[in-house]
Design a protein around this nucleic acid. Structure first.
Length: 271
DNA sequence: CCTCAGATTTACT
DNA sequence: GTAAATCTGAGGT
């Protein structure tokens, strides 16, 4: 597929100084870099501020967990959920507002080997190999397909909560867009790894930046209800790139009954 | 392809 | 106590 060039120009902080539902669609096609891995965003969700969005972590005000969302725009809000997963957001609006955009999925642009290694299946407890015994491989299109997977692929953890994603140095300090493609771009399987440029491979580990990339065309942007939320189902603040294979499958929120909890009494099963 | 259930921390009722 | 901005492997269709 002939895709256009991706711009490595960093987005300014003012890009994020807007309501999250305006920033979110504009983030599609942009590139988030963290260390050696860069992801082209293909799916995001906007979350509003306190008192206005019942699905948002900030709905009931500031807590230790969501404090970063009340900070200045352009920072990463990384939270821990479901007891085992991290998810990453980019903070919007001025300090004190408490809104952000959840990063739900994307395509790995650089650092493919690093991302594959991070997403490789965990070994069995005895360390004798993959837990299943079969050497399963995560397809490249699934490396960052889903918010927790995206966080893993980018290496985003609790310690990166609050990390600034705005490049405030001189643009000249950014490495040149080397185009050698020798280290990356080895195709396999999916057929959509088109030898991406090896730009940014010289950037230091541990920093984050959002680059212009190649904004999704207005005609390719889709929107709908947010995934997995139990409230505000009529708010279409999930945005994704239509027909992109890295967009995660939509799932309606289904409250899960705890297995050990008492089952309901006198409830006839509805078939 | 699909649905089911388990893993397991955090915040709030 | 329990729902939550989730993922994964198992097993059925």
């Amino acid at each position: 597929m002939g895709r256009g060039e991706l711009s490595a120009a960093p987005l300014p902080r003012s890009f994020f100084d807007r309501p999250s539902h305006e920033v979110a669609p504009d983030l599609l096609g942009r590139v988030l870099v963290h260390g050696p891995v860069a992801v082209r965003l293909t799916e995001v969700e906007a979350y509003g501020g306190p008192g206005e969005d019942p699905a948002a972590h900030t709905y009931r005000g500031r807590t230790p967990r969501n404090a970063v969302m009340f900070g200045p725009p352009g920072h990463l809000y990384v939270y821990f959920t479901y007891g085992m997963h991290f998810c990453a957001n980019l903070v919007c609006l001025p300090e004190g507002s408490g809104s952000a955009v959840l990063l739900r999925a994307g395509e790995i642009i650089t650092g493919l080997d690093e991302a594959r290694a991070r997403r490789a299946p965990a070994l069995a407890p005895d360390g004798r190999g993959p837990a299943t015994g079969k050497a399963k491989v995560v397809p490249d299109r699934d490396l960052a397909r889903g918010p927790a997977r995206l966080a893993v692929a980018l290496g985003l953890l609790r310690e990166h909560n609050g990390l600034d994603a705005i490049w405030e140095g001189s643009p000249a300090a950014l490495p040149p867009l080397a185009e050698d493609g020798t280290g990356h771009g080895t195709e396999d399987g999916t057929g959509h790894g088109t030898g991406h440029a090896a730009w940014l491979t010289g950037l230091p580990h541990g920093f984050a930046a959002v680059l212009e990339g190649r904004p999704a065309g207005p005609g390719t942007i889709r929107s709908g209800p947010r995934t997995g939320v139990s409230t505000a189902k009529d708010t279409p603040w999930r945005f994704w790139v239509g027909d992109d294979p890295t967009v995660s499958p939509y799932r309606v929120h289904v409250p899960r009954r705890r297995s050990s909890a008492a089952t309901s009494v006198g409830e006839a099963p509805s078939s």
